[in-house]
Simulated assay, not measured.
Amino acid sequence: MALLHRATLRPTKLDLLTDWLPGRSWFAGSAGVEVVSRGGYRFDDPAGEVGIETMLVGGADGPVHQVPLTYRAAPLDGADAGLVGTTEHSVLGRRWVYDGCADPVYATALAHAILTGSGQAEEYFEVDGRREVRESAVTVVVDGVPDAPAPEVGAVRRVVDGEHTVIDTDGVELVVVRRPAVEADRLAGVVLSGGWKGQPTTVPLAYARPR
């Protein structure tokens, strides 16, 4: 489960992505185009240290882009190239925001979500000591076997960024689809798919291929 805070971020996540996305080779848009949210979904970090959120964003009229993000309380060693930016969280303080594909915690969470069939985390707020569930704007489905043993992911060996970003780990090869679309060819592997407002038919979002 993912605990959310009723908080403000300065700059906002969309502000950060408006500046960061035009520098990506897989971005279909122009610099200066305001990025808007199409929805998102989350995974849980069992250690409770790293926030993990995947955002679906794009220009007002352009294609949807998938951007996994991780939120950390301190810089991640060796991941400067994956830094999206920093933001001030009104509850948690400064957060370092990374492209999740550069973060080993995201790789482990994605592999577990797909291969164990657990899918996305339930999102909730705590209000006066009680839990209020927030409905996700993205519906995620997975092909993995429910309650299957968690895979051994191991260390991230390399990340090859592109329209299909490949995260190569000791135990699993992961693929993140940066521009999800109905007409996209399905790749080999166990698949995580999703649908959202304006995209009622589920489309592939990510794949996992155990070694």
Rank of each mutant, 00 (worst) to 15 (best):
G62F: 05
D61F: 11
E88H: 14
T70S: 10
V64R: 08
T87A: 14
L69E: 01
H89C: 06
D77P: 07
G59Q: 07
T70N: 06
E88N: 13
D61C: 07
G62C: 03
T70K: 04
H89K: 08
L83F: 01
D61A: 14
A60I: 12
G78F: 05
Q66G: 01
G78S: 08
R72N: 00
L92M: 14
R72F: 00
G59S: 12
V84E: 09
S90K: 08
Q66S: 10
V67R: 03
Y71H: 08
G78M: 09
D80N: 09
G93F: 06
V84G: 08
G59N: 11
R95P: 02
P68M: 02
A79Q: 15
H89S: 09
G82R: 00
R94A: 14
L69V: 01
R95K: 14
L83E: 04
D80C: 08
P75F: 01
Q66L: 02
A79S: 15
Y71N: 02
A79E: 13
Y71A: 03
A79T: 12
T86C: 15
L69G: 03
A79G: 13
P68D: 03
D61R: 11
G93N: 07
R72T: 00
V84T: 07
L76W: 08
T70E: 05
R95S: 11
T86R: 15
P75E: 05
L76P: 05
T87F: 08
L92G: 05
D80F: 06
G78E: 04
T86H: 10
R94T: 15
L69Q: 00
V64C: 15
G59T: 06
L69S: 01
D80R: 11
V67C: 07
G85C: 06
G59P: 04
A79F: 07
D77W: 07
G78P: 05
A79R: 15
G85D: 07
A74P: 08
Q66I: 00
Y71W: 10
T86I: 14
V64K: 09
A74E: 15
P63D: 07
H89P: 09
V84I: 15
H65Q: 00
T87N: 09
P75I: 03
L92E: 07
P75S: 05
D77T: 12
D80L: 13
D61I: 06
G59M: 08
P75N: 03
P63Y: 07
P75L: 04
A81M: 10
V84A: 09
L76T: 04
A74N: 11
D77Y: 10
T70L: 02
D61L: 13
D61V: 11
V91K: 12
Q66C: 02
A73N: 11
R72M: 01
E88V: 12
L83R: 03
V84C: 09
H89D: 15
G93E: 07
R95N: 04
G59V: 04
P68F: 01
E88T: 14
A81Q: 14
S90D: 14
L83N: 01
H65L: 00
A73K: 11
D80M: 10
L76G: 05
A81K: 12
L92Y: 03
Y71E: 03
P63N: 06
A74T: 12
Q66P: 02
P75D: 06
E88K: 10
